[in-house]
């Protein structure tokens, strides 16, 4: 990836879940500008990824609100502060600069230079599930269009290749449909003859199969074969346990996402059982200038609730202000009565 010019701003937030989003509001009231990084392709974290349509009953003042609605409302609330989102990007590196600021880098080449970093990473990043096939990792990162891939970044890479796709959700079917025209051959395998995908995708897949453009088997991948990290074939097992060999250049498993702590573990911040211990006045980690709020932090009495994270965001913002603007004074104000806060919110 070509690195873009570094972006200098006030605060970098890792995670655009409900707590990262509300932090934008609290920091915004104090005139601090934020950039957010999230590996997901949209905001909301667990709320939108795991339970968009489930009702939440313990958000103060909102007797019932779904995960998606809460996210939408938070987005509306932070809009006046114009936060900048970097979606589909993993925060991978954190480094202290000579001038005391932090350099946060992502796997997509974004660099943020900031006095304050807020980790609102929840239980960690959402990453693709890896099938429990022995030795699968050997065939990952084997190069464009060959070996094991959990995402398709560039379709062109798969032109002329023999492709095997596993899974029965929307991603498995969408990529079957999209890659079929350019693949040399495409085979889809799934453990049942039924799919958890949009009906029109299922129809399209069945048409491709009927026209002989793709193959579909009720089967699962049991083993991968190849020399020196170069995938050559797989062992497939059918519903009746019969096994056969299938030659392929690429294997694309699509089984959705799971949560792994991920790169935060390598930032050099003190962790306790994958959580970041913080104090309860500032919610700062043991590394000065690095704050942790929401599900990722721990302190005596911690409750992993959205409302706790909101409170943590408010206190953290006060402390962050003193780091970003060391020579300025903070005055406590209510949004109800402060004309300067209302100006920032665009309501006066």
């Amino acid at each position: 990836m070509t690195a873009a010019a570094p972006i200098e701003t006030d605060v970098a937030i890792i995670g655009a879940g409900p707590i990262g989003l509300f932090a934008v509001f609290e920091l915004g009231l104090l005139d601090l500008k934020c950039h957010l990084v999230d590996i997901l392709d949209r905001p909301g974290g667990q709320c939108t990824e795991l339970y968009p349509e489930k009702p939440i009953y313990d958000i103060p003042g909102l007797p019932i609100v779904t995960g998606q609605e809460l996210t939408n409302r938070l987005l509306e609330q932070v809009k006046p502060f114009n936060p900048q989102f970097h979606f589909n990007e993993m925060a991978t590196g954190l480094e202290k600069l000579a001038d005391g600021r932090w350099k946060l880098s992502t796997d997509a080449g974004t660099t943020l230079i900031v006095p304050v970093v807020v980790i609102a990473g929840g239980a960690g990043s959402f990453v693709p599930k890896r099938p429990p096939i022995p030795g699968i990792e050997v065939f990952e990162n084997a190069g464009d269009g060959v070996g094991v891939h959990y995402a398709v970044r560039k379709m062109e890479n798969f032109r002329g290749k023999n492709i095997l796709i596993a899974g029965g959700g929307d991603s498995a079917l969408d990529w079957t449909i999209n890659l079929a025209p350019l693949a040399k051959s495409l085979t889809l395998v799934h453990h049942r003859d039924g799919f958890r995908a949009a009906q029109h995708s299922v129809n399209q897949m069945r048409e491709l199969e009927a026209a002989g453009k793709i193959k579909f088997h009720v089967a699962s991948v049991k083993a991968l074969h190849g020399e020196a990290g170069k995938l050559a074939s797989v062992t497939l097992a059918g519903a009746d346990k019969s096994e056969w060999h299938h030659e392929t250049d690429a294997f694309l498993p699509f089984f959705g996402l799971t949560i792994k702590l991920g790169p935060i573990a390598e930032f050099g911040i003190h962790l306790n059982e994958n959580l970041i211990p913080v104090d309860t006045a500032k919610f700062e980690s043991q590394t000065l200038g690095i704050f942790a709020i929401g599900d990722i932090n721990t302190y005596p009495g911690k409750l992993k609730l959205i409302l706790s994270g909101f409170h943590e965001a408010a206190l953290m913002s006060q402390a962050a202000f003193h780091i970003v603007r060391p020579n300025e004074k903070l005055r406590f104000q209510y949004t109800t009565s402060s004309s300067s806060l209302q100006k920032k919110l665009g309501v006066s």
Binding site: K129, P132, G167, G168, G169, H191, F195, R196, S220
Partner: peptide, 11 residues
């Protein structure tokens, strides 16, 4: 049944 499509190593 639908959600099992997202499970690994289904039997």
């Amino acid at each position: 049944i639908d959600m099992l499509d997202m499970a690994l190593a289904v039997e």
